[in-house]
Design a protein around this nucleic acid. Structure first.
Lengths: 204, 204, 204, 204
DNA sequence: AATGAATGAGGCTTCATTCAT
DNA sequence: CATGAATGAAGCCTCATTCAT
């Protein structure tokens, strides 16, 4: 099933090579968007960050919004790929859940590539048409979560229905951008465990 | 103690009268900021919303950012006041917590006044100086939460330390803007209960 | 009948007051467009011509193209009004024709206001939607010509059908921009007579 | 005499071979310039039209304006050559005139190569220096017309002096771009006759 | 208080042209 | 000869803010 889904995702085009000019532009933009916000980041800022002229940007992207679009699209695609792989590594629901949480956390905090948090924080910066496009990808992504959480609920490992629990978890994870530091007291892995502990049904 | 705190809060000035020109301007702005984002909302948009000319806005606010500042400040102040009142109504920690969650939810979904979610979503729109100012208020606010959550943890009603739990709850609540509708299947009260259920330690 | 037509033309809005800021902007733009061409005229050029900042232009016109649109629209409207008046002053077909030619010539050479020649030379600068709008006006205008020329042909004063003759006359008149100078040897009136002589059927 | 003139024209360089890369570039450009206007036609548009990259254009032409220059120059040269040939075929003034009109019409409507109408519509797109250069060619061209028209006037076949009549005819012919379609009711030959009829002196 | 024209800095984008490969 | 990434100047337009009325 998963291969089937991944095949469908091909329509969203190949991921940008992180070492290509386009890829570096995308990464630099993601960093700036996250730091200053999309609206406050000028194309000149972006150009300066990669050491080119602002006009050159438009060789790689039709316009500023396309950069954000590419970031969002690539981000989901990358995380989705990782998740499918991780889910295949175990049959235990709670272990699967643990994987999802950790991978989303890593995506949010940019272990490998920046950008996941932009999906929420800069959502409104997209035009309607582009929102629809990303929405399709987000659906694949959220369906994955829903599946696992539904299973967990059926097995009585958690107290709340998938729909609500996912909402809570997504919020809890995203918000970590604003208070959790990767270089702080605890690691992302530990943070993931704390969240698991928070909503896991426990016996006395 | 609480009265003492409320007294200190006086320095942040009086709340805008919701029926005054200034108050209506503030409310209209909050609505637009939430809908389109601060950056994409123009001063003309705001003026049009209340039926005046854009130039007239500057008789009430020094500049656009001051509007956002006032919204944020007033919002926290109002919620704080409500919370102090609610906390005084019971001695049970979990009931207190329940109150906090419900009041924050109401603030987020604008039962009485829009704006709480802007505190997170438009945080970066504030200049450094203004961030500091709001930060003071947020500290009062977050301290209140920390106090209650610490108590709950000490009484072993929850599994996770106040610092982390508050982070998770804040995120979970804020994110409801993006998926929960007040006119949907369940009420804010029920939603609050769902969240409580999520992280409450349960006995066999 | 004419009053009826003029009434319909009201939908195209009032003419710009030539002394208002908007009117002066329009006139200055028309002059520049004629001199350097629409594409080569920058909004800064226009602003400089009337002594304001380029940004201020957009208080009066939504964008650069709207200026051209206003010029074209106003121009036709003004000429049409003059033509209806002139046609009413005589019953002789050839005299009517003489009036039309002279009025169009005057419009082309900007006796009172610049702009008529732009209708042809800058036609392609308009977007499709705006072309349609002006087309409606041009139809009123061309119908007037067709009427008179058809009459002239029926009375055997001219050799060629209205459709073709109008095409020839329009071209002949417009092209005078490129070779005829108002300050030269002969006057516009004399030029008009030369054109009349060209295609008028003569007796031995 | 004519051979003498044609010899002088050699200084303007050889005509582009219509099948060479350069020739096809020139033809494609002419088509686009006519369709969208010089200013609105980008170098990329042109490149796309012939299936090369925009950078490659500059191997054939120094810059965009040189393309327009070449088009104009070649166009006049081609028409001139045809005209000299046609004029030699008859001694009758009115027949000669008929030839000129038809050939100019054909040039305008691009029977063999696009471009004549650009001489008028895009005249201002040329820099001063280039205008001077084309002006030299146009002089040869206009002198030819003047010669014939002067003869016709002397022979009392037309009513108006060459200078004015040529202005009218040029305008009438150019303007046909805007209303006459080669695939419509009448042919170019018939159109030429209509124009002849328009200004030819007739006896009762 | 309100108006609304004007400001002016700055944003995004276009595009002819260059040049190393 | 061709490519295509990069340039950099310039264009249009936006918008918060000011200020005379």
């Amino acid at each position: 099933m998963m291969n089937q889904v991944l095949a469908q995702l091909d329509e969203f085009g190949p991921l940008a090579d992180l070492n290509s000019a386009k890829g570096r532009l995308q990464q630099a933009s993601a960093r700036l968007f996250k730091e200053k916000g999309y609206a406050k980041t000028t194309v000149r800022d972006i150009a300066a960050e990669v050491g080119i002229q602002s006009g050159s940007i438009f060789h790689h992207f039709k316009n500023k919004e396309e950069i954000l679009l590419a970031i969002m699209s690539d981000t989901i695609l990358r995380v989705l790929t990782d998740m499918y792989a991780a889910l295949a590594s175990t049959d235990d629901v709670m272990e699967k859940l643990q994987h999802l949480i950790l991978l989303e956390l890593k995506a949010i905090h940019g272990e490998q590539f920046v950008g996941f948090s932009l999906l929420v924080s800069e959502w409104r910066a997209l035009s309607d048409g582009n929102q629809q496009q990303i929405l399709k990808l987000r659906e694949y992504y959220e369906n994955l979560w829903r599946e696992i959480l539904t299973l967990a609920h059926e097995q009585e490992k958690v107290n709340v229905e998938a729909l609500y629990l996912r909402g809570f978890i997504r919020g809890a994870l995203i918000e970590t951008t604003n208070w959790f530091s990767v270089t702080g007291d605890i690691s992302l892995e530990q943070l993931a465990l704390k969240l698991m502990a928070t909503f896991t049904r426990r016996e006395k």
